[in-house]
Each structure stands twice: as C-alpha cells, then as structure tokens.
Amino acid sequence: MLLVTVAIIAGFFFLREHWGHVLGYWPYLLLLACPLMHLMHGKSHGGHSSHLQDSGRTHNGQK
C-alpha cells in the first residue's frame, strides 16, 4: 500500500513538472489506447452465446 501511494505521489509531481510535454503526446496516447483496449478485451467479443452451443463432446473430450 505504501509503494502504491508513493508511486501515485511521484507520478503527480512528474506530470506537474512535465505537463507541457505530456500534452504534446496526448492525441497519440489516446489513439494508442484504442488498439490496446481491443487487445485487452478482444476475448470477450460475442457475449456468452458461444458457451451455450453444444459441440457434441463430454467434459473429458470424448464423444
């Protein structure tokens, strides 16, 4: 908990000192966030309907 608190405080002061540089890269960071979100959440596409389909196999992989 202490390490997280120190990291947040350090990040705040780092951003405060370098805010002009961060603002220059903000559009690129925002565009980079889109593909990263798709990579992180790509496995959840399609909902839970794929779990309801019966593939004809039992739990041990045999028919």
Rank of each mutant, 00 (worst) to 15 (best):
P35D: 08
A10H: 10
V6S: 12
L2A: 12
I9C: 13
L52Y: 05
A7I: 06
N60V: 14
H48W: 14
V22F: 09
V6A: 12
S55A: 02
H38D: 03
L39F: 14
N60G: 05
A10T: 10
A10M: 15
I8W: 04
G61S: 14
L23Q: 09
M1W: 06
Q53C: 06
K43G: 15
H21Q: 06
G56N: 12
F12S: 06
G47D: 12
N60C: 13
A33I: 03
L36N: 03
H59A: 11
L32W: 02
A10K: 08
L2H: 07
F13Q: 13
H59L: 12
L29Y: 01
H59K: 14
S50D: 14
Y25D: 00
V4Y: 01
K63C: 09
Y25G: 00
L29Q: 03
F12G: 02
L3D: 11
H21T: 06
H38S: 07
G47V: 05
H21D: 08
G46N: 06
L39M: 15
H48T: 00
G42I: 03
F12R: 04
G42D: 08
Q62C: 08
L32C: 05
L3T: 08
H21E: 08
H51E: 13
F13P: 07
K43H: 12
P35V: 02
F13Y: 13
Q53G: 03
V6Q: 09
I8T: 09
H59V: 12
L3M: 03
L15Y: 10
G11F: 15
K43I: 01
K43Q: 14
W26K: 04
L32Q: 03
S49F: 11
F14K: 09
M37Y: 04
G42R: 10
K63S: 11
V22M: 06
R57G: 02
G61L: 08
H51V: 01
L29S: 01
R16P: 00
G47I: 07
T5V: 08
G42L: 07
G56M: 10
G46K: 13
F13I: 13
L32D: 02
G47E: 14
H41K: 07
Q62M: 15
M40W: 04
P35K: 02
L32T: 04
S44T: 12
L31H: 05
H41P: 01
L36H: 05
A7P: 05
L52V: 01
P27I: 04
Y25N: 00
A10D: 10
K63H: 11
Q62T: 11
L2K: 09
M37N: 05
L29G: 08
S49K: 14
G42T: 09
H45R: 11
G11Y: 09
H21P: 00
K63G: 11
L30P: 01
R16S: 11
I8H: 04
S50V: 04
G46Y: 11
P27L: 07
C34V: 02
